[in-house]
């Protein structure tokens, strides 16, 4: 009789969960039931009990509740959107793309306060004259040859890539998604394990397919929102400032000059309507001025001789663009 007692116990927990959720005014009746199953799972630690109401659910309040793998799949879809744009042809593997990748990895993998992503960071060059760099959630970082040409040494390039790593670490791309999408994804609670169990049950299989269709729409909507922010809308001045500030700390920790980012920003033209950074970011001069106020507080761990040494290999790699 033990199992029955346990199930009754779980039933009580689910009932109390309803009361608790109700007190908090959390969603409609259907959602409350799903929430009850989920809370029962949380309390018992056993997923069987969340199957009481059949519908599986998970509480996702905002992007911070996503797993790194979920961020990764959003990032892949946004990167795929970027890479089908005729204006952003991906540069074939060559010495320049390998070099850019090494500079990016040097920052991403050597600094302790870079957030680890599901599959790590990747750095890709786009053959475009537009001045642009952006990163998708999960760590797919892109830089155009147009912006590369604006850099005069490796430390400046590291500064730009670090700005993008900072956006990923700070989850700015995910923050661009309307949070109701995440809440909905959690409520739909698509469970791959159940998919396996249901494969011989046509009725449940159909329910699974229906749920998959719904969650895929929410996923597509979320990815569109990120892509729009990256490519057209911009994150806004506050997030750009936060990414610039973190970037100079990242490069300094990696052994690059913390003043190189402001140097390249100061060199960018002030021209709206050309697309890329000039439209999605505050003016380079304004960003550089903000950084000048912070650079004094960031200890540099590099020498003029080392900067010169790196400048040489940067010049060699960028010869491909002449």
């Amino acid at each position: 009789m033990k199992p029955r007692i346990l199930l009754l116990g779980v039933g009580s927990i689910a009932a109390v969960a309803l009361v608790v959720a109700g007190c908090g005014g959390n969603g409609g009746g259907g959602n409350l039931l799903k929430g009850a199953g989920d809370l029962a799972t949380a309390v018992t630690g056993d997923e069987r009990y969340s199957e009481i109401g059949e519908q599986l659910a998970r509480t996702i309040t905002d992007y911070n509740d996503l797993l790194p793998s979920e961020e990764h799949y959003i990032g892949r879809a946004v990167a795929a959107q970027v890479l089908v744009e005729p204006r952003y042809p991906m540069r074939a593997n060559d010495a320049l793309s390998d070099y850019v990748s090494l500079v990016g990895q040097n920052v991403a993998q050597s600094v302790d306060f870079v957030r680890q992503t599901y599959k790590g960071y990747r750095f890709t060059v786009l053959d475009s004259d537009e001045l642009n760099a952006f990163a998708t959630p999960g760590g797919f970082v892109f830089i155009t040859t147009g912006l590369l040409k604006q850099t005069q040494n490796e430390d400046e390039l590291a500064g730009i890539l670090a700005h993008e790593i900072a956006h990923v670490t700070l989850k700015h791309g995910l923050a661009a998604v309307n949070q109701s999408n995440f809440v909905q994804a959690g409520q739909l609670g698509l469970n791959l394990y159940k998919d396996e169990k249901f494969k011989d049950d046509p009725k449940k299989r159909a329910q699974f397919e229906e749920k998959l269709g719904e969650i895929s729409k929410v996923f597509g909507k979320s990815c569109d929102e990120v892509a729009f922010t990256l490519l057209s809308g911009g994150y806004g001045a506050d997030k750009e400032r936060a990414a610039d500030e973190l970037a100079i700390r990242l490069v300094a920790a990696a052994g690059y000059s913390p003043t190189a980012l402001s140097a390249v920003l100061d060199r960018l033209p002030e021209q709206k309507g050309a697309g890329g950074w000039l439209d999605t970011h505050p003016s380079g001069h304004a960003r550089a001025a903000d950084l000048h106020g912070l650079e004094g507080g960031v200890a540099a761990a590099t020498s003029a001789a080392a900067i010169e040494q790196r400048k040489q290999r940067h010049a060699n790699a960028l010869k491909a663009l002449q």
């Binding site: 659910a57 793998s69 799949y73 994804a185 609670g189 698509l190 469970n191 998919d195 969650i215």
Partner: peptide, 8 residues
């Protein structure tokens, strides 16, 4: 994940 995953 019971959210966005390879199936999605």
């Amino acid at each position: 994940a019971r959210g966005f995953n390879p199936k999605v």
